[in-house]
């Protein structure tokens, strides 16, 4: 399994239900989009910093985690300053910075399991709207999580094998075998999923499908 970005802790945010945090973040991002006053946005950045710090992370850790986005913001700010003017640049940087800090606070305090549960709950109305099949969608996402480490390892192995033959720079030498393997694997994987009774028959959950009895403990 890929390690999630969430970190353990017992802060207020950690204990807040995931759905509430997500809704709050979406609301904050929307509201901030319409704020143009640099002072208000600076206040938002402060709120963001407080939120991020409240998760238990030190400022140093926050700085490390947000190094990448900070760089992008800096570049964006410079570009805006050069192409438009300083005020716009400041407003943009402050707005995006505030949102990034708030988003970071949510990400760090919400586990993948919690988010998966929210996702599965969101699948149900989507299913009623005919957009997708909830159990198939959920399985697809879980399968991807399951296979990322394996496929990544295979990619590294292919790279290593190619390097031994002097082909390490070749994109084709990596991608072609990787893709051929997954197409072949998909056949057997699909058979295995079918063999294990997927998809579940939702009309009789809780009942043993063969005997139609409620399962008894041995």
């Amino acid at each position: 399994m890929i390690a999630s970005l969430a970190r353990p802790g017992a802060s207020l945010l950690h204990r807040t239900p995931a759905a509430r945090k997500l809704a709050g973040l979406a609301l904050a991002a929307t509201v901030l989009f319409f704020v143009e006053d640099a002072r208000l946005l600076a206040g938002a950045v402060l709120v963001g910093l407080v939120a991020a710090r409240s998760t238990g992370a030190t400022f140093a850790a926050i700085g490390r985690d947000l190094k990448g986005p900070a760089l992008v913001l800096a570049v964006l700010g410079l570009v805006d300053w050069w192409l438009i003017d300083g005020t716009t640049a400041l407003v943009v940087v402050l707005r995006l910075g505030a949102i990034a800090l708030l988003a970071h606070a949510v990400t760090v305090t919400t586990t993948t399991a919690e988010l998966t549960e929210v996702m599965e709950r969101l699948f149900l109305p989507a299913e009623r709207l005919g957009l997708l099949d909830a159990s198939r969608a959920a399985l697809t996402v879980t399968l991807a999580i399951r296979f990322v480490p394996l496929i990544t390892q295979e990619a590294r192995e292919i790279r290593a094998a190619q390097a031994a033959r002097g082909l390490e720079g070749s994109i084709l030498a990596l991608a072609v075998p990787l893709l051929v393997r997954i197409v072949v694997r998909a056949e057997t994987l699909a058979d295995a999923i079918d063999a294990r009774g997927f998809p579940p028959d939702r009309s009789s959950s809780g009942r043993d499908q063969e005997t139609n009895e409620r399962p008894r403990s041995p």
Partner: peptide
């Protein structure tokens, strides 16, 4: 489902 999930894993890899 299998192809989609595996391809997603390839994109990540």
């Amino acid at each position: 489902i299998s192809l989609v999930a595996l391809m997603a894993a390839v994109i990540v890899a």
